[in-house]
Amino acid sequence: MGGGFVLVPLQVLWTGMPQRNANANSLVAIIPIAIAALPIYYFRKGSPQVDFHLALFLVVGSVLGAYAGARLLSRIPDRELTFAVAAVLGIIGVKELFFP
């Protein structure tokens, strides 16, 4: 868990950051957080459970997807972007709330 789901709404709701900047800032902030979290995860869990074959194929897709998504972000109006973010947070929130 990188923390993006906390960083995005807090920036927009507390500091009035435009949605586009908030989403981009969050993804940049996740880089050091995710890197720092990796050794902590291994240390705490004892035996690291990572399937590098799965990771490789996931990453092939996700890297292309992240590039396309980041390029597209500049072309989505801020207001529509807020609705999209609210929808994603809402769907995952309801899922976690009722089917934890």
């Binding site: 993804l27 194929f57 897709g61 997807g65 973010v85």
Partner: peptide, 14 residues
């Protein structure tokens, strides 16, 4: 991965 990466890039989540 493509779909998850796309959401990651637009919404700003990991």
């Amino acid at each position: 991965g493509l779909a998850a990466g796309f959401v990651s890039g637009t919404v700003g989540i990991g």
